[in-house]
Structure formats: C-alpha cells, structure tokens
Design a protein around this nucleic acid. Structure first.
Length: 375
DNA sequence: GAATCCGAGGGTTTATGCCG
DNA sequence: CGGCATAAACCCTCGGATTC
C-alpha cells in the first residue's frame, strides 16, 4: 500500500511547524515554518524536485570531483590492490584535469575534450580504465542526486580494444626452452620451474608459493596457496574457493627434473620455497620474465610470453581429451569459461572424433552385412 | 672497466570473477 | 550480457653485483 503523503509535519514546542522527509541520500531533511500550510507546500516542492530528478542535497552541490574521488578511494569495500590501482589511475590520468572541478560543472563536452586530449598521452587500457574510474566516481554523485545524470557518455570509451590473443607453446618448444635454461649454470635453477609451469599448467604465483613439503611422491604437486605482490609487499593468499586448491600430477620426465631440482637448489627445510631467488626469497615475476625472455631469444623462438606456458599446460591437457571438469580441476579454474577456450584450442581432436565415428559406422555396416563386429 | 645479470619497484595491461 | 572489482601478468627502468 502506497504512502499517502510525502514526508511529515509536526508541531514543535514553540508552536511552529516542522516539515521533514527522508531524501535519496538516506538522510532526513527538515525545515521549520510558521504556518502548517507552508510546511506542506515546501514538502510538495521537494517532492516535485525529486520526481524531476532536480533534487539537490544541501551542501553537496559544490563538492569537487577531487573530494568525491577521495571518498571513492577511501571506501572500505575496495580491496587494497584495487585501491592501489585506482589511486594510480587517479594520480596519473585524472587528478590534474578534474580534482578542482565541482561535480555539477562536469559536462559531457568537458569529458569528451579531456578524453581526446588524454588519448594522446595515455595508453588505450589506461585511458579506458581511468575513464571508467571517472564515471564510477561521478556515479556516486548521481546516486547522491547531486547531479542528475552522469556526464561520462562516450560510447565504448570504457572498453579498450582487445589485444592479440596469446598462443600456446608446443611441448617441443617448452622442452627446447628448458634445455636452454639448463645450458647455463646461472639459469639452470629455473629449468624445473619452466617445466612445472608448462606441463602442470600452474599459475606463476602458485608455483612460486610452493614449498618443499608440497612436492609429493609420484610427481604430484599440492597447490594450496599463491603469492603475489601488493604495493611492494609479498602477500601469500589461500584460495577462497576450493577451485584453487588442488593436486596436480606431473609427467614422469618432469617429475624427475623436479627431484633433481629439490636436491640441488632447495634447502632441506620442509617449508623451503621450491622456486626462489638465489637468496631464498619469493621469485619476482620480472626476474623470471627476463630470464624466460633471454632463453626464448637464445633458442630463436618467435615472440613468446611467460604466461603462454600456462596455455601450453592447458592446451596439452585438453588435447589428451580431458573433460571440461577435469580441465577446470587441473588448472584451478572455478568457472568453465576458461577451460572451454582450451578445449576449442584442442580442436585437432575433431579429426580423431571423426575417425572414431567412422570406425563405429564401419562396425555397424559390417554387423548389418552379417559379419561379426571386430573387437 | 665494460658488459651482463639479478633483484626490485612501479606503472600499465590483460584475465577472471561476480553480480544485477 | 555489461559494468565493475579484482587478480594476475606484462613492461620498463635502474642500481648494484658479478662476470669477462
């Protein structure tokens, strides 16, 4: 049942009348009048403003984009990594242009001209992300009803162009890289890591969080955590869902290399890192990247990225005919979307399926001809 | 002493998850 | 499905250590 009146009017001890209502900002607004009718009239006018979307919270109109940004970044429901990312976007791409502009003076034209100017100095992704951040910040002002609509209306400006897809290395290329790493005694300790990434399909952060005690018998590796760097500090995370926690079995040849690696490069303590820097700390991605790149260059492989090793692991697993569920488990995915990509990548299998169908059809034909079905 | 590599830092870009 | 949040990867740079 709908409320019959908007707001309420009550009588104060002084004998005057006070009109009150709860605004879209969740706060209660009030004004005192001498006459009861004036109080109701004021309520009616506020309601009209609300319906016309022209209602403005008192004192909020003149807040600047910078003030809204500060609030936005201070929200406690942002993860630290996101806050760091957004703070960087704000500092590098938005602050100079927008910090001192009152939110109600941000026009679509101003946004457009900022965007076209910024497109000359920012990369496409940074531009799209900072545009989205600006839009998100101003959306708070819209929610506050300080402005009636968001001036960020550039079509498609929030979605950067997709980059080129990454390719998976072949098993042979991965082995070639491993050999290359083994040639130099300085990079030899990276060889096992490369093989584990390529044939186990582990995420880099999962591999570098592995400890001696996670290497189980039978070439199995237990993945229970991952490590990443947030704002210059190492953060070891336990996966929130069960999907990330899993045990991956490595091919025997890789397991053998890992055994050797354990003897030569890993301290004896059960919690010694399996793949660490020479000083025993977590392996930084940038260092692994450059080592990887040098090896790739030395073997004459076309441009490859370290992450493509994971694609290798995934694609090879898919090519063995693993089901979506099996792939998800091995890769630690919580949704099938990613695993499906690899299954498509393993489309070579289609020919095998066709051959198998041929065999079945042949068998049926033979049976119809009265022959025994060959077993 | 120059060349090369390692390790670290920080900004940028991509991938994935989640939710309405 | 799109927007947003977040995780993860990429990329560049630089100082100091190591090797040649």
């Amino acid at each position: 049942m709908a409320k019959r009146t908007f707001g309420s009017v009550d009588r104060l001890p002084s004998g005057r009348y006070r009109a009150r209502y709860v605004g879209p900002d969740g706060r209660r607004h009030a004004k005192v009048f001498n006459a009861k009718a004036d109080a109701w009239a004021w309520l009616a006018s506020q309601q009209t403003d609300l319906l016309r979307k022209s209602w403005r919270a008192p004192n909020a109109v003149h807040r600047t984009v910078g003030e809204y940004a500060d609030d936005y970044l201070a929200r406690n429901d942002l993860r630290e990594s996101t806050r760091i990312l957004y703070a960087g976007l704000w500092r590098h791409h938005l602050r100079e242009a927008w910090a001192d502009v009152p939110v109600d003076e941000v026009t679509p034209a101003a946004v457009r001209s900022w965007h076209s100017k910024a497109s000359r100095t920012s990369g496409p992704t940074a531009l799209a992300q900072s545009y989205r951040l600006l839009r998100a910040i101003l959306n708070v002002a819209v929610a506050d009803e300080v402005i009636s609509s968001n001036p960020c209306r550039l079509r498609g400006a929030g979605t950067p162009k997709a980059s080129r897809p990454s390719r998976a290395l072949t098993a042979a290329e991965a082995l070639q890289l491993a050999e290359q790493l083994g040639r130099d005694r300085r990079t030899e300790r990276y060889r096992a890591l490369l093989l584990v990434l390529a044939f186990g399909g582990l995420r880099f952060g999962e591999a570098t969080a592995l400890r001696r005690s996670d290497a189980l018998a039978g070439g199995r590796v237990r993945i229970e955590r991952s490590v990443r760097r947030v704002g210059g500090r190492w953060v070891v995370g336990e996966p929130k869902t069960d999907a990330g926690q899993r045990t991956v079995t490595l091919p025997a040849a890789v397991a053998a290399v890992l055994e050797e690696h354990l003897e030569k490069h890993v301290l004896s303590s059960p919690d010694a890192l399996l793949f660490s820097t020479s000083s025993g700390g977590y392996l930084a991605r940038s260092n692994w990247n450059s080592t990887f790149r040098r090896a790739a260059h030395a073997t004459g492989l076309p441009a490859v990225r370290p992450h493509e090793l994971r694609h290798t692991g995934a694609t090879l697993a898919a090519a063995t005919g693993a089901t979506t569920k099996e792939l998800m488990r091995r890769l630690g995915h919580s949704s099938p979307a990613a695993a499906l990509i690899y299954q498509h990548a393993a489309d070579d299998r289609d020919a095998d399926i066709a051959r198998a169908l041929d065999a079945m059809l042949g068998a049926i034909t033979e049976a119809r001809d009265g022959n025994e079905r060959p077993q």
